[in-house]
Each structure stands twice: as C-alpha cells, then as structure tokens.
Design a protein around this nucleic acid. Structure first.
Length: 325
DNA sequence: CGACTTTGACCGGCGC
DNA sequence: GCGCCGGTCAAAGTCG
C-alpha cells in the first residue's frame, strides 16, 4: 500500500528519511535563519518569507534562535511537495554528497536542529479524501497483500521530519502512539522506530530515529493527519481559523516535540518570547511551548491552497504562514 | 486484562 | 532475476 508511489515522490520520501543527517551535517550550528539563507540560495524567497513569519519574529526570538540552546527547531526544506510548483528548491538538502563534504558534526550545546520536511503528495489529493480512501486502501492492501497494481503508485501522506535534540527517542507530543515496528537503519547504529496513532480511524504514523552523526538528535517524521484532537492536550484556543477550517484539528495534529515530560533539554521557543503574532494561547506552559516550538517546524509545502487539504501542512502551518504562497 | 512493546518474518519497490 | 532495504504485520512478551 505504501509502496505505490511515483518516482518523484519516492525521491521525496527518500529525502525525507535521509535528509536529517545531511542537514545536520550541512547546517551544524546554523540557526533557522541560516538555514533560511540556504534555502534562499535556491529560491527568491527567504526562509521567513517562505514561512510568512517575518513579521512575527521578535528580537528575543531571534536571539534565542541564534544563541546555542539545547533545544530548537529548524525548518528544513526538503523537496517541497508541490515541488514542481513550490518556490523552494532543496536539492542541496537531498544531496548526500554535497552534505558529506561539509560534514561538521553538530556540537553539543549548539542550537539543536530540528527539521521539517513535507512531502507533497500528489497532486492535490484532498486530504479528506485521502483520509477516507487511503485509510481503507491501506488496510485493504495490507490485508490483501497483493493488490492489483495500478498505474499510479500509492499516494503517501505528507510527511514532516523534525530534528530535535533530545535524550529520549520518543518525544511526548500530546498524542498516543503505538509502536508497531523497529528496524535497523542502514549506516546508522541507531534503530528506527515506527509508531502509529492509537486512535482508531486515525492513520497518522511517525518514525523516530536518531541521527547517527549526532546521537543527541532525534529525527521524528510524521506522516498523515490526525483526524482527532489530541487526547492529552486541551484544544488550544487559537485566534485563527475556526476548527472547521481544518487548522484547529491541524494544530493538534502536529504536536511535534513536546518534551516537557521527559528529561530532555527543553528550551523551546516559548515562555513568552514568542510574539503575539503567532497567535496561540498559552493554555499551559507545556502546551504553549509545544505549540510555539511547533511553529518552527513548519514548512509551507503542500501547495497552494490554504487551510484545506494540505495534509500535514495544514496541521502546522497557520494560515498567515501560507498566505504568501 | 487491556494496552503497549518487542522482534522476527514478510512483502514490495528499487537498483544492479 | 536477485538481493537489499524500508515499511509493516502479528505473535509473544511486558507492564500497570
């Protein structure tokens, strides 16, 4: 089921699973802005512009991003989903060779690097439809094992990968996950774990692995979209689009790294340093931190429309971040 | 006892 | 065609 995918997408997926290390090497100590600059080299848009958040950064936030901290999130731009139409080129990120030549291990205490990647999947396949079809399709294919091949390969859910400095592999993110597999990763001493959202009818998955170049970095890749609110967190009161717009659910769908429950070095972009422009309410510090941090794990990838049918994109990218697309 | 994890087996895609 | 690899299944084990 998950194996049917266009060549193009496969590439993207590949990057999704492998870029983190590359990125880590490529941007060892870089801040999100530096990453931005890299992206900028390939496109006419700046990182923040891409995110549509240039107006939302406060000086303190900037400082924080630049000052080494044990935890941070940096957006990575792997192949934009609508890569074809996307404004950002990230070939660099996808190129292991290029990265390897610049292999600079992230140093401890440096800004940890989180990355977000998205895979666009396919041509505007509405997420809603994907939820229905994919869901059934996936299970069906699994059961049948030998589904008839069609011309098109399976359409994967958008994926977002994040690199987070953490001592624990499985980051608390507000959702409940069931581990369904673990595989050794080639060229890495660390295994990759596969998790599925435990909520019935929610087929969101995530993969968790450690960067072998820097074991302190956890790479979490989310795939799919939650069809339910976080069972652990209260719904954030977001001053943005109403829940029905898809964002509210979305806002809960990509909890990202919320690590406060672990002994992780938690130094999120939170604690009041975020400008109000980001708009999330601080229901609690934990939530706020998580939400705020999440903001930096966004990537305007899924295309052109706004809050609808963007898969994970809509989960993490507020409307104002998408407006410039 | 239910929920979750572990782990070996299995399958399909892909490159050679 | 073959082997490698990523991803998933599912039985058994573990935990609270």
């Amino acid at each position: 089921m998950e194996r049917k995918e266009g060549v193009k997408l496969e590439k993207v997926v590949e990057s999704s699973s492998s870029f983190p290390d590359h990125f880590e090497s490529f941007y060892p100590l870089q801040s999100v802005f530096e990453v931005c600059n890299e992206a900028d080299k390939s496109s006419s848009l700046g990182f923040m512009e891409l995110l549509g958040m240039q107006d939302y950064l406060s000086p303190s936030l900037l400082d924080m991003l630049q000052v080494p901290s044990s935890t941070s999130s940096v957006l990575v731009h792997p192949t934009p989903p609508a890569a074809a139409s996307g404004p950002v080129s990230v070939t660099k990120v996808e190129s292991p060779e290029v990265v390897s030549n610049n292999n600079q291990p992230a140093t401890p205490n440096s800004s940890s690097i989180s990355s977000a990647s998205s895979e666009a999947l396919n041509d505007e396949v509405p997420v809603k439809a994907a939820d229905n079809n994919d869901e059934g399709e996936q299970q069906k294919t699994k059961k049948e094992l030998k589904p008839k091949k069609t011309n098109q390969k399976r359409q994967r859910e958008p994926r977002f990968a994040f690199m987070t400095k953490s001592e624990v592999d499985h980051l608390e993110d507000g959702y409940r996950w069931r581990k369904y597999g673990q595989k050794a990763v080639k060229n890495s001493p660390f295994p990759r774990s596969y998790y599925r959202c435990t909520t019935a009818s929610c087929n969101v998955k995530k993969r968790v692995e450690r960067s072998f170049t820097d074991p302190t970095i956890v790479v979490t890749t989310y795939e799919g979209q939650h069809t339910h609110p976080s069972p652990v967190m209260p719904r954030p009161s977001f001053a943005g689009p109403p829940p029905e717009s898809g964002f509210a659910a979305a806002s809960l769908a990509m909890p990202m790294q919320r690590r406060l429950h672990h002994q992780q070095h938690q130094q999120p972009f939170g604690n009041g340093i975020l400008p109000s422009g980001f708009g999330y309410n601080n229901g609690s510090n934990t939530e706020a931190s998580f939400l705020q941090e999440r903001r930096f794990c966004t990537y305007p990838a899924a295309g052109s429309g706004l809050l609808k049918d963007h898969g994970l994109l809509q989960d993490i990218v507020p409307s104002y971040m998408l407006k410039d697309e």
